[in-house]
Write a protein that binds this DNA or RNA. Structure first.
Length: 490
DNA sequence: CCCCCCCC
């Protein structure tokens, strides 16, 4: 994804004769006039508004490489172009984002709305003829076809859309493990616009994937302008994702009239600055909210373990919360010896068995599945207490969360635990999690333990807390509360 | 000729 806080300012006069092939002696035609019928006998002049990295791929014909650009020659007049093979080496460095070129020698074909946001696309190979052109103030930067939150919610998924709105929340960056095992950073923003009126919340989740998600230097409120986000769906709600050529701007692009910013800020105030709904990836919960919402959880054995009761609550709930670690229970080791035998996960992939190993003598450990090994790998399994200003909660944490809390592998902690001569060092490490203030992602489930129902809360992810961001947000909440208090004339 | 675009 590309980030563009400042956009090239272009004067407003429209290009004359929009949408009609130009008869200028140069032979340049408008992008709008391009179609497969042009064959290769055409030339366009346009500004590069997005440019991807080079990607390599393997196809039936062997390995290949490509990169993509989006070209515009006028408001709403845009086309995507892909460079393959030798054209990548020829043009990747030559073509610069925001600059104007003439393009010829490519072939035009119909775009596929599933992944192209323009009606036609161009492919270039070594036959491409591309020349740098003088900057042309008639050619603006990115053009947007904004949809509202309501339109996106009611429209189809798997299309790309543009959206403008106000940032209503910024979730911390977390590392997501993909189905193929790779880790990928992600950060969700919540974006509000007034289009849902009173009917709905008006907030939509926009997830930034990849290295951009790790950046911390962007606003946590105010306007946002998104070009080319992909519509997804989860839990019957539409959401947006950044993809390769998604462009995010936090400053009003020239194509957007200044009055729009004033209007949406006014609408936001009129609507009472609506907070995003609580939900899987929405606003952080307080610990009190966590407990309250967990009361809806249904028991695992309800209905005798079978049948679906529409009146029963969800079997699991996810929350994000900001908490401080006040206790880690270390009467017993906060780790266990885990079986590292690879097993089938039932979905065609391999994963570690991770069952607890018991010591069966010299260099022999065995797990409940009967796997044996000489030496166990230790994994964290710990209970901790988290607190915020509304209460406290006891949570279980597994290996990944344990590594973040203790700052070392469970194997390292186990080595300290078992070494009488390193007790002081051990005590130091055991203290490390204390008073850490983090963003916790937790999953709650009701379970029956010794004939008693209880809610078990497990940590699924930990991200460090951004103190500056958190402080600014709290300050702004305080100021809002104060101004509401005085406006109320109390 | 890519076309994967992600997680719950």
């Amino acid at each position: 994804m590309q980030q563009s806080g400042m956009q090239r300012q272009a004067p407003s006069p429209m290009k004359p004769e929009r949408g009609t092939p130009s008869r200028a002696p140069s032979g340049i035609i408008d992008i709008a006039g391009l179609s497969p019928y042009n064959g290769k006998r055409w030339m366009i002049k346009g500004r590069i508004v997005t440019k991807s990295d080079v990607r390599t791929f393997n196809s039936a014909r062997g390995p290949g490489q490509l990169f993509k650009i989006d070209i515009t020659d006028g408001p709403g007049s845009e086309i995507a172009a892909t460079f393959f093979g030798g054209a990548v080496d020829q043009f990747y460095d030559f073509l610069k984002l925001h600059q104007v070129y003439t393009f010829a020698g490519g072939s035009v074909k119909a775009g596929n709305p599933k992944w192209d946001r323009t009606p036609h696309v161009i492919t270039f190979d070594q036959g491409a003829n591309i020349q740098a052109a003088e900057d042309d103030s008639n050619i603006p930067g990115l053009a947007y076809q904004f949809k509202t939150v309501a339109q996106i919610m009611e429209g189809p998924k798997d299309i790309t859309v543009d959206l403008r709105g106000l940032i209503s929340d910024v979730r911390p960056c977390t590392q997501i493990t993909m189905k193929d095992g790779r880790a990928r950073p992600k950060r969700s923003l919540l974006i509000w616009d007034p289009s849902m009126g009173q009917a709905g919340s008006g907030h939509i989740e926009f997830t930034i994937w990849g290295p951009q998600a790790e950046k911390e230097d962007y606003p946590t409120e105010g306007p946002i302008f998104i070009k080319g986000a992909r519509v997804g769906e989860f839990n019957n709600t539409k959401s947006l994702n950044s993809v390769g050529n998604t462009v995010v701007a936090y400053e009003r692009p020239p194509a957007v009239e200044p009055a729009w910013v004033e209007e949406i800020l006014a609408a936001w105030n009129n609507a009472g600055k609506p907070a995003p709904p609580r939900g899987a990836s929405a606003r952080s919960a307080t610990i009190q909210e966590l407990h309250n919402e967990n009361m809806r959880l249904s028991s695992p054995m309800e209905n005798g373990g079978g049948g679906f009761d529409p009146n029963s609550g969800p079997t699991a709930l996810r929350h994000a919360l900001v908490g401080t670690v006040t206790t880690v229970y270390t009467e017993r080791p906060p780790y266990y010896p885990a079986c590292s035998q690879m097993v089938d996960d039932g979905k065609g992939k391999q994963r570690a068995c991770n069952k607890k190993l018991s010591d069966e003598g010299v260099d022999c450990w065995r797990c409940a599945s009967g796997h044996t090994c000489q030496r166990p790998q230790y994994r964290y399994l710990l209970r901790a207490r988290l607190a915020d200003h509304t209460g406290m909660v006891e949570v279980s944490s597994f290996d990944e969360a344990g590594r973040l809390l203790f700052g070392c592998e469970a194997n390292d902690l186990a080595a300290l635990w078992d070494d009488e001569n390193r007790n002081e060092e051990l005590q130091q490490v055991l203290k490390r999690p204390y008073w850490k203030r983090c963003n916790f992602s937790v999953r709650s489930q009701k379970e029956v333990w010794q004939d008693e129902e209880r809610v078990k809360v497990s940590v699924t992810d930990i991200a460090s807390e951004n103190m500056v961001r958190d402080g600014k947000k709290k300050l702004s909440e305080i100021l809002t509360a104060l101004s509401e208090g005085s406006a109320g004339g109390a």
